[in-house]
């Protein structure tokens, strides 16, 4: 059961920002609703108003420019999993998107909603950190870029200000195709652990928020293949600790840390293959 709320249907980013500024914590952005509506049905959160952003134009496109792919925040997972641009430029992200939740969630859930809701067991944030993505945000009269690694503050908490709207995600294309990988493991609907390698190394799902692990990167970056392979176990241990794994239904802390190491080794091999 959902409690009654009012619906606002703005047509522009400036209007969205204005509404969010005016109504503060009593209003929430609503896009696909696949996560927000669940939390509302459970009574975990309650809003007086939802601001439906799906009428704002220009935010559901995928464009390729020099060395980067720009993804509109309203692109659905289904749009991303079937995108020719992603197949060509960001195969790891495409593969991740093909495996988000299930076909119904992918049909309506948006990439922007996924990132802004910041559910700890979400996949995209981890790979976007590894890819060095930038999140473009707007307010009524200003615009800024937030590095993906700075976006996730804590579980369900992002760097967005109250009246700030995520509009686009800009993802640099890795130089040689395929030199990135995202692997996840889990036996419930949502993954227990996710590990991504690209420009950066990132871990997610195991703890409250996805994290870049620079200390593990240092063990692999600029090394010969043999040397990097010798360092993999240590990098895995470092990444495991950095994941801030939590013991829960998805597994114990110790177990998740171990899985981070296993996935890191496999992701490394996949990124090089």
């Amino acid at each position: 059961m959902l409690r009654r709320f009012r619906l606002e249907e703005p047509q522009s980013v400036a209007e969205v920002s204005e509404l969010l500024g005016r109504f503060g914590e009593s209003a929430k952005v609503y896009a696909g609703g696949t996560e927000l509506l669940l939390a509302m049905k459970e009574g975990l959160v309650q809003y007086e108003r939802l601001v439906n952003v799906k009428n704002v134009t220009g935010l559901n496109e995928i464009t390729v420019t020099d060395g980067s792919v720009t993804i509109g925040a309203l692109c659905t997972h289904h749009q991303l999993e079937t995108s020719a641009a992603l197949t060509e430029k960001l195969p790891a992200l495409k593969k991740l998107e093909q495996n988000v939740a299930n076909v119904r969630v992918r049909q309506v859930g948006t990439i922007g909603g996924n990132l802004c809701f910041a559910e700890p067991h979400a996949d995209p944030g981890t790979l976007l950190i590894a890819l060095g993505a930038k999140l473009i945000t707007e307010k009524s009269s200003s615009k800024r870029e937030i590095a993906a690694e700075d976006f996730f503050v804590d579980a369900y908490e992002t760097a967005l200000e109250a009246d700030e709207v995520l509009t686009k995600i800009q993802v640099p294309v890795p130089a040689a195709n395929g030199r990135s990988a995202y692997l996840k493991f889990g036996y419930l609907e949502r993954p227990s652990v996710g590990v991504a390698i690209a420009f950066n190394l990132a871990v997610g799902c195991a703890g409250p928020a996805p994290r870049r692990v620079a200390e593990a990167e240092a063990l692999l970056e600029g090394k010969s293949k043999d040397e990097a392979e010798r360092n993999l176990a240590q990098a895995g241990a470092v990444a495991g600790r950095a994941a801030q794994a939590i013991s829960d239904l998805h597994g114990s802390q110790e177990y998740k840390e171990h899985i981070v190491g296993v996935l890191l080794k496999r992701a490394f091999q996949r990124a090089l293959s």
Binding site: G33, L37, L38, H78, V103, R104, Q107
Partner: peptide, 19 residues
């Protein structure tokens, strides 16, 4: 949105009608 028992097709694509 996990089990699919409420699946309906909207413009030919499956959605979870429960959510």
């Amino acid at each position: 949105e996990v089990c699919g028992a409420c699946t309906l097709l909207v413009d030919g694509r499956p959605v979870s009608a429960c959510t």
